[in-house]
């Protein structure tokens, strides 16, 4: 056990990040649960419920729960060299979810540097690979990026099975007919294996085996509609004319560039310039 070394977790309060925290209690005595907040994200305090549940379940572990405002970081990362990026990458600049997560990682690195944390984890899972920060190729880039600051970045729940795709239509057979007989997730991955929500249930941290998308789940993590524009871009504009490999390639190009471009924020931070945009703790 890494008795004296703390770990930082990008904590939304959802099933994946809560399970990540639960699994890491075996290795760490002190866990920093960091929930990030910015304009466009609502009900951020919802994540506190699963923090309290974790603290009750694992009393021997010290959990440090913080909400950090990263609005300025997100703004800088989304809009720096905007015209240049717009002409080069076009609508890929609307990849809000990826840019938001990248901003969280940048803010997390600053937090780690401030608090001498050398290990960071999150709840990235292979079942959500349409989102850039959950894509294996981007995760590798982020891992290298963290390494340059002496921080190790891991994804303990990445290989858990993705949850079964849920439909708003109650009749499952009808839903299958309408989606061509097989859901996208089932087509890409084998549905066998334990999901994060099942594991969380077996650990006694969830009331039922399937919670994703339920009212219970929604009340335990922040609400955000910012993915809508990104969704329109990917599902309705890009993918109807291109395949997934092209999407992955474009995403890798864009985010490799964005990671390099964002480095100056942390370089400035280490020099003591622009410290004000980081570690803005909310009470």
């Amino acid at each position: 056990m890494e008795e004296n070394k703390p770990v930082g977790i990008l904590f939304s309060g959802g099933t994946d990040s809560t399970l990540t925290a639960a699994l890491l209690t075996k290795e760490y005595k002190k866990i920093h649960l960091i929930t990030f907040d910015r304009l466009g994200i609502f009900e951020v305090k919802n994540s506190e419920k699963n923090y309290k549940r974790l603290q009750d379940k694992f009393p021997e572990t010290e959990f440090v729960y913080k909400i950090i405002d990263f609005n300025d970081v997100f703004k800088k990362i989304s809009y720096q060299n905007y015209i240049k990026n717009l002409t080069k990458y076009g609508f890929m600049n609307l990849s809000t979810c990826g840019l938001c997560k990248l901003s969280m990682h940048i803010a997390m690195i600053a937090y780690c540097l401030e608090n001498q944390i050398e290990q960071v984890s999150d709840g990235a899972n292979r079942g959500m690979e349409i989102f850039p920060a959950q894509m294996d190729i981007i995760i590798e880039k982020l891992r290298d990026f963290y390494k340059t600051y002496g921080i190790s970045y891991t994804n303990p729940v990445f290989d858990f099975a993705p949850p079964e795709e849920k439909s708003l239509i109650k009749d499952k057979e009808m839903a299958q007919i309408m989606s061509g007989g097989v859901s996208k997730r089932e087509a890409n991955y084998e549905s066998s294996g334990e999901t994060t929500e099942q594991k969380l249930y077996s650990l006694g941290l969830s009331p039922q085996q399937e919670v994703k998308g339920t009212h219970y789940d929604k009340k335990r993590q922040p609400r955000c509609f910012q993915f809508m524009i990104f969704n329109v871009y990917v599902q309705k504009w890009f993918l109807p004319k291109h395949n997934m490999d092209e999407y992955r390639k474009n995403t890798l190009d864009f985010f490799s560039h964005k990671i390099t471009e964002s480095k100056f924020l942390l370089d400035d931070y280490q020099k003591g310039i622009g410290k004000g945009i980081f570690n803005k703790e909310k009470t």
């Binding site: 304009l39 466009g40 703004k75 989304s78 809009y79 717009l86 076009g90 609508f91 600049n93 609307l94 809000t96 509609f225 910012q226 809508m228 524009i229 329109v232 871009y233 309705k236 504009w237 109807p240 004319k241």
Partner: peptide, 28 residues
């Protein structure tokens, strides 16, 4: 739907920070 998607993306890409957030919320 692709034509609609194009216009939604075109509007979004031209909007500044706060307005894009409001626009995404509206579309949502």
């Amino acid at each position: 739907s692709r034509v609609i998607a194009f216009f939604v993306c075109l509007i979004a890409v031209l909007l500044p920070f706060r307005l894009r957030i409001v626009f995404a919320e509206f579309v949502g």
